[in-house]
């Protein structure tokens, strides 16, 4: 539900940073545990960018796997869901990746 708004935030943040230049490419980092569907962002992107500095820009989304460090045994393990327990059985973990939701970089057209 919130992906359209999130995509609008992408456009707002990138347009601000572009200061009037055209944005050729936007790279996002979206964790698989962030609660945001990358398909939905892609779906919205072409529509949301129309008429903005991002019109025609390429969208790259780097999806980040969920990872956690087990507080019991110290192992770092993959966490495909928010409630994946450590192979050792413990659920006491610190999530170290997978919740990203940010614009990493934008690529701007060279100033004339």
């Amino acid at each position: 539900m919130h992906e359209l708004g999130i995509t609008r935030n992408v456009v707002a943040i990138a347009s601000d940073a572009a200061k009037g230049r055209r944005v050729l490419k936007v790279t996002l980092e979206v964790g698989r545990l962030s609660g945001v569907m990358t398909e939905a962002i892609r779906f919205c992107f072409d529509t949301v960018v129309e008429g903005t500095a991002l019109d025609g820009a390429e969208l790259e989304i780097r999806e980040i796997e969920g990872r956690a460090r087990c507080q019991a045994c110290g192992a770092v393990y993959l966490m495909p869901t928010l409630f994946t327990s450590c192979p050792c059985g413990s659920r006491d973990c610190e999530r170290i990746a997978g919740e990203e939701l940010s614009i990493k970089t934008i690529e701007l057209e060279e100033a004339a």
Partner: peptide, 15 residues
């Protein structure tokens, strides 16, 4: 000529 790449590192919900 390479396009300018600007590192933003901005959380989408930053505002």
């Amino acid at each position: 000529e390479p396009a300018t790449v600007v590192a933003l590192e901005t959380r989408l919900l930053a505002k």
